[in-house]
Amino acid sequence: MKRQLPLMLVFLLGAFMIIQYFVPAQASLDAYEFILDWMIIIGIFAMALGIWSLMRVSWHKIKRRSHDWQYAALTLAGLFIMVLFGFEPIGGGLKSYLWLQFYEFVMVPVLATIFSLLAFFMASAAYRAFRARSLLAAVLLGSAMVLMFRVLPLGPLSDPINELAGWILVVPNLAAKRAILIGVGLGMVATSLKVILGIERSYLGRD
């Protein structure tokens, strides 16, 4: 019962959505939109569980005075302050000054900086590929070089490199992406089918 009912729900809703795709009638579109709204609303309750987990883990660290527990306290402080700012009666909500400042001067700089770390990580990853000394790594690196050098002023070499780069993007790139996409499409269909038929049910846990 504990697993049967969810499996039945999965099957019924899954089958409904497959059929829905083939039915263009208004009732079908309405049902589809309703279900999308459902998923969004259910999802926000999951967010509450997530925040609960974050608070729980942080609190355990603080309570046990485990290593670096002070930082867990900082996380909680950040969380509570931001929630207060975002709660209209107290902090003024999503358009309030404090909320926007926290967004602009805490979230944005950190976000942009972490993203920009990628520039360094790409360099070290390229070096890693260089050291791998395998034929496939060399192929990968060679094609990466062509694409990287296309923007450099290399005099007479510029034109052929640009042509080659453009060709790689249009020809082999297209072939590989298409092969992957066909495989992915089939794999998705197979996995969806396994889920709907209840063959794949590890996500449901145990009784």
Binding site: G43, A46, A48, L49, G50, I51, S53, S202, Y203, R206
Partner: peptide, 14 residues
Amino acid sequence: EPFVMTVAQDTVRA
């Protein structure tokens, strides 16, 4: 993703 977390908890516990 919080929803993923709940499923992962069930999966790992099982």
